[in-house]
Design a protein around this nucleic acid. Structure first.
Length: 535
RNA sequence: GCGUCCGUAGCUCAGUUCGGAUAGAGCAGCGGCCUCCUAAGCCGCAGGCCGGAGGUUCAAAUCCUCCCGGACGCGCCA
């Protein structure tokens, strides 16, 4: 199936092929301003004027002659300084609509053709519950994964559990102190401990007593918290294909082998009893410690082993999704992987900015260590899964997100997610009302101007999603759905669909309704937000 | 100091990849619209030196340089 944008693009490319000097210039296919009547505008003539040494309008006229050959186009006009405005015929749009209704689904091209993509995200440390910031990264990763999937990629979602290192020791110490407190002993947790109340419950529930060994307590604590994290994620409709434990993938002997391998490359040096990788030779600011002077491997060393494991398992593309506070770590990891001979161009690191939480305008400081945070569970309790998923994608992932809990809950009635869901509900309501009574009526074969605009907008969904995937910007989906919902709500107010006195028009409009319902459902599915039949 | 990101309407933000026509939404404000498929909706009004200054060009919120303001990072933490 050919979407409208693709048809214009094909012609413009044919045009460009006649003139090698403009082959590299982007076509500039975009929506015209609303005051213009066209579906799409082409800005190429103005961009090409310099290279072709001709006036933009002259080029535009030549291009418009080529576009006029296409039977799908009703009108092609040169406008303004050298735009070409194109409008599609109703019959072409309606043919696409009929096809989608017949298939009951939107057709996606499959540029992925089963290429394998491994997306690692969330990967929160098992020292406390997920907080709101983790939720943002979780949604970003999950919807990005869904986008890859619809375009034919084979996606694996992976969670890396950092269940080693000093943080786990500190977790166990914190739990032991809590268990002593529970028995009435007057001991205090220090700055370095995890001081959230949740540890009291975990200690009580898992029967930890002061006499237990640190290893036992660490194991019990990790298990409890990991289970908790995954149950929260499941509530949030996020499931992983792989869970990789640092303790399993990066045992001491694996780190030893890693060091040997890097030593053979001549990239290892020792200083003050520590083992360094010479990452500064590979673009990093300075060399990085692999093995500390106390013999313990660093997080970095383990992480290299883990990434090496990923490469060994194989994928065409690896995507790591990190909080922006880790941005300074990127170069270190890339340099390390380069030292190991990994194809670093296959690794993509996407950073998301953290969430600043407010309650009634007052900022809330978040720290797992101090135990001050709003958990993702609490947020879901207050706001609901659909609203949280949707709202976390109402801002570009590399801008910080201000989230005011009071506003989010108090405004729950005019939350953007309901605006979109309501559009779907209205569509469902119309179909209930019609109840098949126009099924045998031949629909009118033309569209009103408003209907034309609405259909054209909706047919742009798949090409739009392709751009969204290419830019790794799933948040655009929520904006696009709001726009389509706005177009539809306007249309709905002005056009009565079910009208027994005008059966041909009703039949035509019902086709539009069926079509739009599929588009909304597809979009909401992509976000894994409910598409309700009634609200 | 160096690095990454952000700065657009009173507030929260799209738009910056890939430069296009008069810069868009939502919320808050003001005024209208339900004998009719759900008013969780629609229509209208008002609201802008796109942080600032230069530069590139037919054209800059978008590209380049510098500056100002904010967040984060720069460990033998993870």
């Amino acid at each position: 199936m050919q979407y409208p944008t693709q048809i214009i693009k094909t012609v413009v490319n044919n045009f460009k092929n006649q003139y090698p000097e403009i082959e590299q210039i982007p076509a500039g296919i975009e929506p015209p301003p609303e005051t213009e009547t066209g579906d799409l505008a082409v800005a190429l003539p103005m961009r090409a004027a310099g290279a072709l040494q001709r006036s933009p309008r002259e080029i535009a006229t030549e291009l418009s002659e080529m576009l006029k050959q296409r039977s799908e186009l009703k009108s092609v006009e040169v406008a303004g300084p050298g735009f070409v405005n194109c409008t599609f015929t109703d019959s072409f749009l309606l043919k696409s609509v009929a096809k989608i209704i017949e298939q009951q689904t939107v057709e996606f091209p499959e540029p992925g053709s089963n290429k394998r993509v491994l997306i690692e995200f969330v990967s929160a440390n098992p020292t406390g519950p997920l907080h709101v910031g983790h939720g943002r990264g979780a949604i970003y990763g999950d919807v990005l994964a869904r986008l890859f999937e619809v375009f034919g990629y084979q996606v694996e979602r992976e969670y890396y559990v950092n269940d080693g290192g000093s943080q786990i020791e500190r977790l166990a110490e914190s739990m032991l102190l809590r268990s002593r407190q529970a028995e009435g002993e007057a001991v205090e947790l220090s700055e370095d401990h995890y001081r959230g109340d949740y540890l009291k419950e975990i200690v009580a529930d898992s029967g930890i007593s002061p006499g237990d060994s640190i290893e036992t307590v660490a194991r019990r604590g990790k298990e409890e918290i990991i289970a908790w994290i995954f149950s929260t994620l499941e509530r949030f409709r996020i499931n992983f294909d792989n869970t990789v434990y640092e303790s399993e993938v990066a045992p001491p002997e694996a780190v030893g082998e890693l060091v040997k391998r890097l030593e053979a490359e001549g990239l290892v040096r020792r200083e003050d009893g520590a083992t360094y990788l010479s990452t500064s030779k590979l673009g990093d600011d300075k060399d990085r410690v692999l093995i500390r002077s106390n013999g313990e491997p660093t997080y970095f060393a383990n992480d290299l082993v883990y990434h090496l494991d990923k490469y060994n398992r194989g994928a065409d593309q690896f995507i790591d999704i990190w909080g922006h506070d880790h941005h300074g770590y990127q170069q270190r990891l890339r340099s390390g992987l380069q030292a190991l001979g990994c194809a670093t161009e296959r690794l993509e690191i996407e950073l998301y900015q953290l969430v600043d939480l407010y309650r009634g305008g007052e900022p809330l400081q978040m720290s797992t260590r101090r135990g001050e945070f709003v958990t993702l569970d609490e947020l879901i309790d207050e706001v609901g899964v659909d609203a949280v998923r949707f709202n976390f994608l109402t801002k570009n992932h590399n801008s910080p997100l201000d989230f005011d809990i009071e506003v989010a809950t108090s405004q729950s009635e005019d939350n953007p997610v309901y605006y979109v869901q309501y559009a779907h509900t209205r569509l469902a309501g119309i179909l209930r009302k019609a109840d098949g009574q126009f099924d045998d009526v031949e629909p009118e074969d033309s569209l009103s101007e408003a209907g034309h605009r609405l259909v054209f907008k909706a047919l742009g969904f798949v090409p739009f999603l392709q751009q969204t995937l290419a830019g790794r910007e799933p948040h655009r989906i929520t904006f696009w759905l709001r726009e389509l919902a706005r177009h539809f709500h306007t249309y709905y107010t002005a056009h009565r669909v079910v009208d027994p006195s005008a059966p041909a028009i009703s039949a035509r409009r019902l086709e539009l309704v069926k079509f739009l319902k599929i588009i909304f459902k597809t979009g909401l599915d992509l976000l894994d937000v409910n598409a309700p039949e009634r609200m």
